[in-house]
Design a protein around this nucleic acid. Structure first.
Ligand SMILES: [Mn+2]
Ligand SMILES: [Mn+2]
Ligand SMILES: [Mn+2]
Ligand SMILES: [Mn+2]
Lengths: 219, 219
DNA sequence: TTTATTTGTTAGGTTACCCTAACTTTATAT
DNA sequence: ATATAAAGTTAGGGTAACCTAACAAATAAA
């Protein structure tokens, strides 16, 4: 049975592998905040368990078994976030830190019950997909708001970052998932967006913010 | 910050100290299922943290700080059991194992929210008292059913054992907390009790069972 | 009171996770 | 192609929990 540290390595490996299946030891270490020798040592353990493929001086890759293990931890994380938000009433900026701990609990019935109480959700409070019991994760290919043209209207579907500061910024701006955003104007020199949504008219969003909002064009 | 192992030692120390404040290393080891040298080593760590008092070859005792720490872990355990039972719908025979893990989460807001959702309960699904935020635990002095006289009627308030097998036995007999039990007859040679409660008439409970039911006389 | 028995301690090991310092290999730049 | 930089490895340590085997101290029995 995987330890907490192991589960955290698998999660990190999974999210890195989505961009590039060839994972470097250095970036994994940076992601987890541990030194390169520590990663080196841990990777050998993961290899022995059959979760990664690894040869000296070569990049690391996840095995199918490793991907499944990782997806199941992500499932537990995201179900927990959903439970904390929808059942317990926490804000989307509070759930990640607590879910980071809950995800390591070993109890199938516990997570199954969460799933059931939530009505088998397919995404978490930040719009990220929840893998199914077999570890299959749907990858939605939303655009970022920064890719949208003037005059178009979109629906906010997910976020690229679940950083607490960012989420609190969105709270302040009264931006939440599902909101319909109309792009009124795009400033050429800094790519800032002037948008309207809900009660808000002509709100300016910086390029940095627009790049983190995942949307779907509705008209 | 205490580790999981540390919290488990504190809980075990707390429950042993209630019967005898002078705790032997051997009984602590037995309770936790670890060897004597392991306990010996851990006790030195607990002493360094100021949670126990300890001198070579002498019995162990909890400091005030240690008692508080322990009670706060017990609080988290019992709140979790209550949450699992009342909010998530688990049976009283299922909650302990899951709570054994949840109790180690580090998040005050999480347990405060549980507490709030439950309406600030004072006892867990097995009738055991939940310590308050300061670690004060009320000790209720219920009698056991085996101490009750023929003809008396009692209310089941708590259990002396939360063993899964025992709880499943109670389920089968349809005995739950709050039920009113009338003692019809006590068999002299084996101390078995013939009782009536709810829909059940003249059910025979062994001495072993009667000794584990904590009750309050109502008439 | 000597002898058992129980209880507690020491010594020496193991695994999982973490570290820094020093070195080697591979990749990049000039 | 050589020098430099980046990436990866080894060596050597550390702490928290666990273990067994062997021994010492305290307690109970004969
Ligand atoms: Mn998260
Ligand atoms: Mn985690
Ligand atoms: Mn319990
Ligand atoms: Mn525990």
């Amino acid at each position: 049975m995987p330890t907490q540290a192991t589960e955290n390595y698998l999660k990190a490996l999974y999210s890195l592998h989505l961009k590039n299946p060839e994972i470097s030891l250095t970036e994994l270490g940076q992601r987890l905040g541990v030194s390169k020798p520590t990663v080196n040592e841990m990777i050998k353990r993961l290899e022995k368990e059959g979760w990664v493929m690894y040869e000296r001086y070569k990049p690391i890759s996840l095995t199918e078994e490793g991907k499944k293990m990782a997806a199941l931890v992500i499932r537990k994380h995201r179900l927990s976030e959903m439970f904390l938000s929808d059942i317990m009433g926490f804000g989307w900026e509070e759930v990640h830190q607590i879910a980071e701990q809950i995800e390591h609990l070993k109890s199938d019935i516990f997570f199954d019950r969460m799933d059931e109480m939530l009505g088998f959700p397919t995404s978490d409070p930040h719009g990220s997909p929840i893998p199914d019991r077999e570890g299959n994760m749907i990858k939605n290919n939303y655009k970022t708001l920064s890719q949208i043209k003037e005059g178009e209207t979109v629906e906010l579907k997910a976020l690229r970052s679940s950083d607490k500061e960012f989420l609190m910024y969105l709270n302040k701006k009264e931006i939440s998932l599902g909101v319909e955003i109309k792009v009124n104007n795009i400033e050429v020199f800094d790519n800032s967006f002037t948008v309207s949504y809900g009660e808000q008219v002509n709100v300016v969003l910086s390029q940095a913010v627009a790049a983190k909002l995942l949307v779907e064009v509705i008209k």
